[in-house]
Simulated scan of single mutants.
Amino acid sequence: MQQLSMVDIDNIAHGAGILGTGGGGDPYIGRMLLAEEYRRGSVATLMDPDEVADDDLVVASAFMGAPSVVMERIPSGDEAVEALRVLERHLGRTVTAIVPMECGGLNSMIPLLVAAKTGIPIVDADGMGRAFPELQMETFGVYGVSGSPIAICDDRGHSVLVDTGADNLSMERHARGVAIRMGGVAYIAEYPMSGSDLKRTAIPRTLTLARSLGKAVTQAKSSGRSPLQAVIDSCTTSIYGHARLLLEGKVVDVARATSGGFVRGTAEIRAFDDSRSVELSFQNEHLIAKEGDTVLAIVPDLISVLDTETGLAINTESLRFGQRVQVIGIATPSIMRTPEALDVFGPSAFGVEEPWVPLENILVAGAVHRDA
């Protein structure tokens, strides 16, 4: 186990923004809450998956709802801790380790905040390898772990327990309804599992990857190197295995609305010389990048939008006309590519008609392929 410094937290926040594929919430808010907790003397401890005992009780911690609402209703930081305590009381057991639901955006920061506040170690793993908009879209559930009972808390001290047994899709629907009634955002503790199940179903060492991504971008900027190439190099030497630039240009159009607890919409990115144009479709996170009728990348592979100058990620709720950006694709790890996984979070799960084709197998004229 290792204690994380605020430099580590900053790097994880930057890297998780990239892995968040436009969603998962803005990590800045969580980073500021963690900075305050660290000033009080608390520290988050990172635990390798191999250090988790088979009989440990591990619980996933996160926020759920529309990321744009979090920007309007800043949490105190206690909501996710209360969700954990509500679930512990219901189970009659003490949680021995926390795991992120996803490694993207704010949802990389919330479990770190819970770890710092409670002293419970956080496992270097997660259940999505990116960010997804729905709770059943986790490798924990794909490989047989029940998401419920789930504890849901808001910023007013209200809490709700939902138990749908092994039906994770129903858990998502009930929990989503509760989160909407709570104002569009809530904080959760879910997927209570044994250490053995965690090691069998989680995507390993994704917080370490996020930290490496953030550090690589920071070092590239300070040394005058390309932040984009640093991101691509970090991804291609990880279990993700492949990354590429899809388009560099400017944002020329954004259509976005919050409905059903999600931020949905499209964005158009046009090359600086007007020779190419890519449309991104998103539901909290980017789902598909298309140039005309040609698919450049598609869920569950990652699609992220980076600021051209800084290499930092731009969330879907922060996309604005005129931004100069780089659209990148990152391949998913093998655990997210099985038929069982694609049934849960492949294109059809989002109503996307195009079939999934692995990013590394998509050959498109104009899309820049930069493997390490």
Rank of each mutant, 00 (worst) to 15 (best):
D167A: 09
P75E: 02
A186C: 06
R337Y: 02
I188E: 06
D154S: 06
S275N: 11
Q229H: 08
V217T: 00
H14R: 15
I232N: 12
L34C: 08
A313G: 08
L319H: 02
I18P: 04
D8Q: 13
T316L: 03
K199I: 00
V299F: 10
S348P: 10
N361Q: 14
G65S: 01
H158Y: 12
F345E: 12
K290G: 08
Q2L: 14
A372T: 15
A297G: 07
V69Q: 09
P358F: 12
G22S: 04
T139R: 05
T94M: 04
L84W: 10
D48Q: 15
I110Y: 09
R324Y: 12
E360D: 14
D274F: 07
L161I: 13
G224D: 01
G214S: 10
A189V: 02
D293R: 10
R89V: 06
I120R: 05
R337H: 02
M128R: 02
R276G: 01
V7A: 14
T201M: 03
G165N: 06
Q2R: 15
V368E: 15
M193F: 00
M47L: 13
V254L: 09
S212C: 13
M47G: 00
E138P: 00
T94K: 12
I180S: 08
R73D: 12
A83F: 01
E291D: 09
A202W: 04
P67T: 07
V368M: 14
A53G: 11
V69E: 09
V95R: 02
I328L: 09
T45C: 10
T218A: 13
I188R: 07
D163N: 14
G17I: 05
G157M: 05
T258F: 07
L213N: 07
P149R: 08
G104S: 12
C103T: 15
G92L: 05
G165Q: 05
G261W: 02
R93D: 09
G241S: 01
P347I: 04
G127M: 04
R264H: 10
H158Q: 14
G260F: 03
A202Y: 02
L57W: 07
S318P: 01
L33N: 06
E248S: 11
G20W: 05
L91I: 10
G15Q: 11
A220R: 00
I74K: 12
G260L: 00
I303A: 08
V344S: 06
L57C: 08
F345P: 14
G104D: 11
D126R: 00
D56P: 05
V7H: 08
M47H: 00
E285V: 02
S42R: 14
Q2Y: 12
D10R: 14
L87R: 05
I110M: 11
I330M: 11
L306N: 02
G322T: 02
G127L: 03
G41M: 06
V7D: 12
L245E: 13
S146K: 03
G346F: 07
I120P: 01
M182I: 07
R337M: 11
D124N: 02
V325A: 12
I239P: 08
M1C: 06
A372N: 15
V70Q: 01
L319F: 01
L280F: 01
V185S: 14
P333L: 13
A297P: 07
M109P: 07
V142K: 06
F63C: 14
A13T: 09
L246T: 02
I362D: 13
Q3F: 13
A271K: 05
I12S: 05
H286N: 15
A115C: 05
D197N: 14
R89F: 04
G104K: 13
